[in-house]
Design a protein around this nucleic acid. Structure first.
Lengths: 141, 141
DNA sequence: GTCGTTGCAAAAAATTTGCAGAAAC
DNA sequence: GTTTCTGCAAATTTTTTGCAACGAC
């Protein structure tokens, strides 16, 4: 389960599992959509009312650092966070309802990257892929 | 040449080719690295001193809209712009010197996307790929 | 001359920092 | 008990808006 795993990751990295952090983690776990810090705050205050926005920012950044959340980016902004459960993975986002689906990294991508390295002389250390589209639900409307 | 092409794109879309816009376009053309709006302003003021930051923001957004610039994104921010000359393309960024190299879209990627659509039921309309690494120059240091 | 565009100032939005008190462990 | 963490207020940074003057066509 996402929250339990996340608690362990926090502890193993020497961080404390506090009530504010638990509330943020629970919100990420229950969300099907991607979330902005402000939205996380609103939802998490149902669980832990005295939560502050600053703590949300700090917790999301920490979780992203530890690999338990991912910051997602769009052509015109990059304020979204989603839960992340897989190691090397990417996200697929519905542009209508914001649903975010995680899928494993594309192994075959390495074969596409090789020729780019050869041609450009770059060493590619990291890649970011995001896909935007419509989820099954929103296609029907 | 990038600037000439860009002027045409602007005109064809019913926009005017003004001195402030020319300055921004020239900066994009001459830059090897990705640029933040503030940086564009500094460099463009060498060409057109009375340029304002607001115009830089508006011009970069317009150029991105028209496909002549691309906003690039990183794990921790998305404030960068680069010149864009190819139709469907992606960018490869050097994490040390910020050099940005454009490369054509990966046709083979479609074959990777298909199975994801099948598995998730999503219709994928757009994808964003960015690669981070070290350019030949920075590898030597 | 017309109408899109500009730059300024100001506003709004987004994010970060300092710090004393609270609470995990 | 110690040390990390929290929330507030305030500061900073980033981006947007309103508007009169300007300038491309």
């Amino acid at each position: 389960m996402y929250s339990e795993t996340t608690y362990q990751v926090l502890r193993q990295a020497g961080h404390r599992v506090t009530r504010p952090r638990k509330a943020v983690i629970q919100v990420l776990q229950e969300a099907r959509d991607w979330l902005r810090p402000e939205t996380v705050l609103t939802r998490a205050r149902d669980i832990y009312p005295s939560l502050g926005l600053v703590t949300v920012y700090r917790t999301l950044a920490l979780l992203a650092d530890l690999g338990c959340a991912r910051r997602i980016h769009f052509e015109d902004g990059c304020q979204g966070y989603v839960r992340r459960e897989l190691g090397h993975s990417h996200h697929l986002i519905c542009r209508a309802c914001r649903e975010a689906v995680e899928f494993p990294g594309l192994e075959d991508l390495d074969q596409l990257i090789k020729p780019i390295e050869t041609r450009t002389g770059f060493v590619i250390e990291e890649h970011m892929i995001e896909m935007l589209g419509l989820c099954p639900n929103c296609q029907q409307q």
